[in-house]
Design a protein around this nucleic acid. Structure first.
Lengths: 397, 397
DNA sequence: GCGGCTTAATTCACAACTTGGAGGAAGGCG
DNA sequence: CGCCTTCCTCCAAGTTGTGAATTAAGCCGC
């Protein structure tokens, strides 16, 4: 247990962080409002804000009309103070996006990949980084950081384990750092999408929430008390491989009865075929849509889909009982397809598996951002750090 | 989101807390050691300690022999500064225990109950409180607080929901407060036992852990980053009602396939009977021991027990995947009976259901404290608050 | 157009805090 | 008994948030 002291310096950093976070998260705000919502004195707010303005982190942005008094000056984080880059490393593409601090996309670079090696990924991410910077005319020194969303388990300082890609203990962060001076942070793709959803999507305002992603596979991001929960060595949130049907279907992770084997699109389509269902064509996504459309005509399809909702509900109920979130956000392409059609049924089914008390406290909603938000979420990682540090820039080599 | 300021006052409270916590948790310590482990300057340690001594919270306790210099003076929390009371409200008894701040039992009062009403429980807890105080000659003003461990879900400020007792939204804390001026805190029994185990038992030193309790029912206490995790409205940790066998056995909570229905003693004995097993007599506990002893002679018993270990392992694996703890502590009377015999098998089975990465990071161990530690854990609640507040006493009416 | 009014932001003296260094305290050792 | 080592405490200095007083900025009525 490393209990640590608090110094007068920590106090200032903490208050700078509180103010900067307030300005960033809740749009342009006046010093007055900041003073009220942080319960800092007007004097301190003024003091801290003028420091932040002097450093260029914050800027004034017009003022609000008054009713006879001096108008309040609005403050915002200077969008061009620094820029952030988010990279999505998926199983089929590498996407790199450049954002300003208002989180607007300034440039984008995509590159398709297939069964990529770590070296290839590093190459494409660095190439994309160079491309977006050149595209938008931003210098590397102006970039606050590069956030990378990787498929798989991310451990400690950017070591990636991805069974589906055959990656084992790949030091992705370190490898990338050899090609650039920009500070790098790596996280799991589900977590970054969850982070995006918490900041800009359906998770706004919640402090204890779960963002569940259902696609070909299944994952979840846990948010406890306002910040992402990572466990001992940051590999928490592997919701997809929760055993939900003891002794059931074999999952691609090797275990039996995982949630993913029943709710992930691959598992769902597999079950349909096992029940003798046919007639689905195209890629996985098209097939999944086809399955949902076949519900009214095919007995097998109806059974599989209803079951899927039930299994998903049980998975949600387990989260509700164990974590007692105030909100569950359902996303991922398959999750959205299911949710659009079956959200009421899903809610009802969750009630059958969850305890009454925590069930009454949770609301289940759909993601608001598309799956393109993975890179956006990755880009929030450096921003999160900036806010936590009260606007103090991370050191560079 | 109520982000809050930090003032110079918070700083001092925080540092007092750090020092007091250090002294309490890690035995007698010298100012020197405190200075090093907290990285506070020697001057500040001296300053804060002398304040704590003046207030009577801390006292000097001998000194360590030196090798030619001034000997270090050891400091400890004054055991008689205040006293704490822990109450265990079980389904069959009310136990009240009085502790000093060294957490030694000074007096105990037991009272058997059967299907108790809230009013009865309140009566017995207050009677027990009076009894232990009289017994040890402690005045009410000397009591720091009363911690109550209740069976069921405890929500917010001591509102208890206990389906098995038929309690719904019982304001236990408030009811008790009408009978005494002593500050009251109420928590779930599994949580308090978990707390005891984290401080004084098998959980020592861990920051991310789960204490799992398997008795007639099944529960768990989640500890994240050194402190108990409670969720939105403090009803997290209902591990027992996690769906683990979709569409399986009916649980007493009304849902199907709960872990408790397969791993709780009641469920295990039920399964044995369903398989045609017979010959178990006595109360639940005796029957459970009988079942375990019958493994070598009865096919049904062997099947049930092996299955139980498997189900329990799946339940653990779900925790491992989702929460990524560094330690899982297995307790509860049935859990200990199982664990004593099958811990290696259990560990192995967990490996079959959990992902490799988080599995390698978790150690699974048995509780070190008996189930009598429920009241001890409850008594830690006021102590925890004292430590958090840096030795500042809670207000009294 | 100008004083009066209202509200926002800043300035300033102050109190609370940690810190590093100087000095005092307490014991061992020759 | 004096010297040395180590622990502890006191003191001046440097930071920081706060409340009261002050200044700034716009509106309104005449």
């Amino acid at each position: 247990m490393d209990v640590r002291r608090t110094t007068v310096r920590d106090m200032r950093r903490s208050n700078r962080s509180v103010i900067l976070t307030g300005i960033f998260r809740d749009g342009p705000l006046s010093r007055q409002e900041l003073s009220i919502r942080t319960s800092l004195s007007a004097a301190s707010v003024s003091n801290l804000v003028s420091e932040l303005i002097a450093e260029g982190v914050v800027e004034e942005a017009g003022s609000v009309e008054s009713e006879g008094g001096r108008p309040r000056v609005l403050l915002r984080v200077s969008p061009t103070f620094r820029y952030v880059v988010g990279a999505e490393v998926g199983e089929t593409r590498v996407r790199v996006e450049l954002f300003d601090l208002a989180m607007r996309v300034l440039a984008r670079a995509d590159h398709p990949i297939h069964s990529p090696t770590p070296a290839m990924v590093v190459k494409h991410v660095l190439a994309g980084l160079g491309a977006v910077l050149a595209d938008a005319g931003v210098r590397p020194e102006q970039v606050l950081g590069l956030g990378v969303a990787a498929a798989g388990i991310v451990e400690g300082d950017a070591v990636v384990h991805a069974q589906t890609l055959g990656w084992d203990a790949v030091p992705l962060g370190q490898m990338l750092a050899e090609g650039t001076d920009i500070p790098i942070q790596v996280d799991n793709g589900a977590n970054t999408l969850g982070q995006a959803e918490m900041w800009f999507g359906a998770g706004r305002g919640a402090t204890d929430a779960v963002v569940a992603l259902v696609g070909s596979g299944v994952g979840a991001a846990l948010v406890a008390d306002g910040s992402s929960y990572r466990g001992t060595r940051s590999s928490a949130g592997e919701w997809g491989h929760m055993t939900i049907a003891y002794g059931g279907r074999r999952c691609r992770c090797g275990a039996d009865g995982c949630l993913e084997a029943y709710v992930g699109a691959e598992g769902v389509l597999g079950r349909y075929r096992e029940l003798g269902g046919r007639g689905l064509s195209g890629d996985e996504e098209a097939a999944f849509v086809g399955l949902l459309d076949a519900v009214s005509t095919s007995e097998a399809a109806a059974t599989v889909v209803t079951d899927t909702v039930g299994y998903l509900a049980a998975g949600f109920a387990n989260l509700v009982n164990l974590v007692n979130p105030e909100r569950i956000v359902l996303g991922g392409w398959a999750g959205l397809l299911l949710g659009e059609r079956y959200l009421p049924l899903l809610r009802e089914e969750v009630g059958k598996h969850a305890l009454r008390q925590p069930y009454q406290q949770v609301s289940i909603v759909l993601c608001e951002l598309g799956r393109d938000a993975v890179a956006l979420g990755a880009a929030t990682l450096p921003v999160l750090r900036l806010l936590r540090d009260g606007g103090v820039l991370p050191p560079r080599r």
